[in-house]
């Protein structure tokens, strides 16, 4: 524990700027993955343990598309679109058969998909790790704001993640399909009785959830290593985000992801040997005092 260093950091503008932006970057990518996870749970009550696999496959598809086209934007879009399609197939072929089944059955199916996809990645891309490399437009020196270091690529990531989060909120809050999704989360039987095609609706939810994870994988690919099984670590952190934010709450996921990012960012200064532990302590505190999460009642 180094509280002097932590105090020194929060009272220094350069450290404050650097660590805050660092926390936002970590938080925004987490939010993109966790938002899909919490959306699927909110509507379908499915805890998608294969969600990290969506992130991994999105990154690999984005990598291949980037190598083929040379365009980072097309790579990211390919990752998102690929995972939207994969999400629909996953929901139709497997998950639709276990709606209402016990969680263990859902867990087994998701875990099987995780293992199968990890092996498929090894067959298609090989066991080597890959790095996409920084797109040429972002191969520029970092900016210095109030003495703090802020890379332009990360500013772009934060802006894009916020834009996607905003678009998702608008979709759910203002559009007809968003209202139907929210209604289905509250009372799927009533939505079905009104003649709305819930089969299509559920597939759509998985498509959006998959797309968000795929976009996150594609966006992060320039700075992360692509390896089979890379989705596992982000899955755990995404679950912490959904538990803290409240299962099913998009707004809660955003707040929780940013909080976790900041905990990691400043925790590594003040509690270098216990940064991971701080995240779990935050989760335990929420589970003890507000088991539904910070925004648990605010179901999408």
């Amino acid at each position: 524990m180094d509280l002097d260093a932590l105090l020194g950091c929060v009272t220094s503008s350069s450290c404050l700027v650097t660590q805050t932006t660092s926390g936002l970057i970590v938080g925004m990518l987490l939010f993109m993955v966790a938002a899909g996870l919490t959306l699927i749970f909110g509507v379908l009550k499915i805890v998608n343990f294969a969600h990290g696999t969506f992130y991994m496959l999105g990154a690999y598809i984005a990598y291949s598309a980037f190598m083929f086209t040379g365009s980072y934007v097309l790579g990211v879009l390919a990752g998102g679109l690929g995972m939207a399609i994969f999400g629909v197939i996953f929901e139709r072929v497997l998950i639709s058969r276990v709606y209402g089944a016990n969680v263990l059955m859902q867990l087994l199916i998701c875990y099987a998909v995780v293992l199968i996809c990890d092996d498929l990645v090894k067959i298609v891309w090989g066991p080597d790790f890959y790095a996409m490399g920084m797109p040429p437009a972002f191969q520029v020196p970092p900016l210095f704001i109030a003495g703090g270091v802020v890379p332009p690529f990360y500013i772009m990531l934060i802006v894009v993640a916020l834009a996607i989060g905003g678009a998702l909120s608008l979709l759910l809050g203002l559009t007809r399909i968003g209202k139907i999704i929210r209604a289905a989360a509250h009372n799927p039987n009533m939505v079905s009785a009104l003649g709305i095609n819930t089969t299509l609706l559920y597939s759509l939810v998985f498509a959006v959830g998959g797309m968000l994870a795929g976009l996150a994988g594609g966006l992060a690919a320039p700075v992360r290593s692509l390896t089979p099984g890379m989705g596992f670590s982000i899955l755990i952190e995404s679950f912490i985000v959904t538990v803290i934010g409240g299962m099913g709450s998009i707004g809660g996921a955003l707040i929780a992801a940013v909080v976790l990012g900041l905990i990691r960012s400043f925790g590594t200064i003040g509690f270098p040997l216990f940064t991971e532990g701080l995240m779990y302590i935050a989760m335990i505190i929420i589970l003890v005092f507000k088991p539904s999460g910070l925004f648990g009642k605010e179901i999408v």
Partner: peptide, 21 residues
């Protein structure tokens, strides 16, 4: 300064910024 990221950690950002500080 000493940073100890978890094996297989996807993100080293906070460790890198700590080193810079």
């Amino acid at each position: 300064s000493q940073g100890w990221p978890k094996l297989g950690a996807p993100d080293f950002t906070e460790v890198i910024t700590k080193i810079l500080q």
